[in-house]
Design a protein around this nucleic acid. Structure first.
Lengths: 186, 186
DNA sequence: TATCTTTAGTAGCGACTCGAAACTATTGCA
DNA sequence: TGCAATAGTTTCGAGTCGCTACTAAAGATA
């Protein structure tokens, strides 16, 4: 058994046990993952295609999941004005409350010392980036870590969309994000 | 966003992307995970309840998955002689071939330097052990790392079941495994 | 030994995931 | 203006998933 297979087995097993723990009354693990993504994404990144790309599934599958969430009043559907092909799925009050629930995996992680956590986060980030490279996947990072991000006097600016960003927006996920090279800075 | 949540999101996202990649003609990610477990488990640990406990699901759900695998000739069903309540699901030739297929996640992991891999494996192991502790879950480790394991002159011995172990068996997964404390040894 | 009690596997249920394919609406490009 | 690309949706069939209810076997207790 190679170390690569060991690590893959560990990641998948942890994720499955976490999924089993995260079932709630009327929210399954997939719905919760989609909801969690929407809670972190900025206003340009809440369409079915974005959630699908983030979680590595198809538009069709994610469309169904989002419709299920809308049916149960966790999200609201909104047709974008600028480009009428896009939908924006925004969290309702009920949806926001649901993302705040804690779970065994987070509790376990909370007991770790910072060095272990940092090393783990770093390792997993490398795994993800390497996989995305092979898959032609997008990073879905935060604006603050993006090549298009410019830090102004008091607030940030996105050079791709030519808009200024509110402080809270700079730490949201964007589907257009292009990770900065290490050491690079504006 | 806490670091714990970041790590959880990373683990789940990597697992989902890996799952999407691992679909094959007639084998879905869950079936592959079960098959992969069976390939590693020793002859006392191939029952539906063991696979269910390992992957954090219920006996009912796993029973269906194993029946699906049997229907497609990846595993064979065998009633245990000693305890007739137990089933043993053993891999067929077709099943063994299916576990040998590579995938993007393993390929990505293969490019890492040993230090990164070791650190990642170690971190994930701690996460899993901590979660299992909270969940009253079993470790499902190898015989060679078990408290009941005794290394003899040429072969190992299991002090729980009072049987001697073939060399290949000492590195298989056992559902009875009780991890040794660090530093402890026979 | 006779009777609980526990454990293992399973069938059936309803909601839903999942990839694939087919389809519509909108946008972009030549 | 026309055509290709993109976004969202629907439908299909197979299967996951927790849950409940059930049977059979093994253990424990009286």
């Amino acid at each position: 058994m190679t170390q690569a297979l060991k690590i893959r087995t560990l990641i998948n097993r942890i994720s499955r046990i976490d999924a089993a723990d995260s079932w709630s009354d009327d929210l399954n693990p997939t719905q919760l993952a989609a909801l969690s993504y929407l809670a972190q994404a900025n206003r340009f990144s809440r369409a079915p295609s974005h959630v699908a790309a983030f979680l590595g599934t198809t538009r069709g599958t994610m469309s169904q999941t989002l419709k299920a969430l809308a049916r149960k009043d966790y999200v609201s559907e909104l047709r974008t004005e600028t480009d009428k092909r896009y939908m924006s799925y925004d969290l309702t009050v009920k949806g926001q409350a649901a993302t705040k629930r804690s779970n065994p995996l987070e509790k376990a992680l909370g007991t770790f010392n910072p060095a272990t956590s940092d090393s783990l986060e770093h390792g997993l980030n490398i795994v993800l980036q390497t996989m995305l490279l092979v898959n032609n996947g997008r990073a879905f990072g935060q604006c603050i870590d993006c090549s298009y991000y410019q830090s102004g006097a008091s607030k940030g600016y996105c050079a791709l969309l030519s808009i200024s960003l509110k402080p809270t927006e700079t730490k949201q996920i964007c589907h257009e994000q292009v990770p900065m090279q290490a050491g690079q800075s504006t």
